[in-house]
């Protein structure tokens, strides 16, 4: 029981820490990557909450699809900024 509680506490602090870093990291691309890590940790949390259905969806959507969307938006932003500066 105490082992499970220890794991829960570790997971909880990892969740809070990654959320905090996603908001405060200076570099935006790092923030997006930390957010993807947060999504994967959420999938673990759902597994701990006996909700494997949500865990599956969170791993595929929260971490995978959202991450791809955010990274793509960040890449588009960078490209456009570079285009604006270059010509």
């Amino acid at each position: 029981m105490s082992l499970a509680l220890g794991f829960d506490l570790l997971l909880a602090s990892a969740l809070l820490w990654s959320a905090w870093r996603a908001l405060t990291t200076v570099r935006l691309d790092h923030a997006v990557v930390v957010f993807i890590v947060f999504g994967l940790l959420m999938a673990l949390a759902w597994a701990r909450l006996q909700a494997p259905d949500i865990g599956l969806a969170e791993a595929a959507i929260g971490a995978g699809l959202s991450g791809a969307l955010l990274l793509d938006a960040y890449g588009a932003l960078r490209r456009r900024e570079a285009e604006r500066k270059a010509p």
Partner: peptide, 27 residues
């Protein structure tokens, strides 16, 4: 995890109010 959820919610809410960059606001 409900308590963690409360903390995440308020952290995110403060972020939406305080951060300027839209991508970070979406996060």
């Amino acid at each position: 995890f409900a308590i963690v959820g409360v903390l995440l919610f308020t952290m995110g809410g403060a972020g939406v109010l305080l951060l300027d960059h839209l991508l970070r606001r979406i996060l």
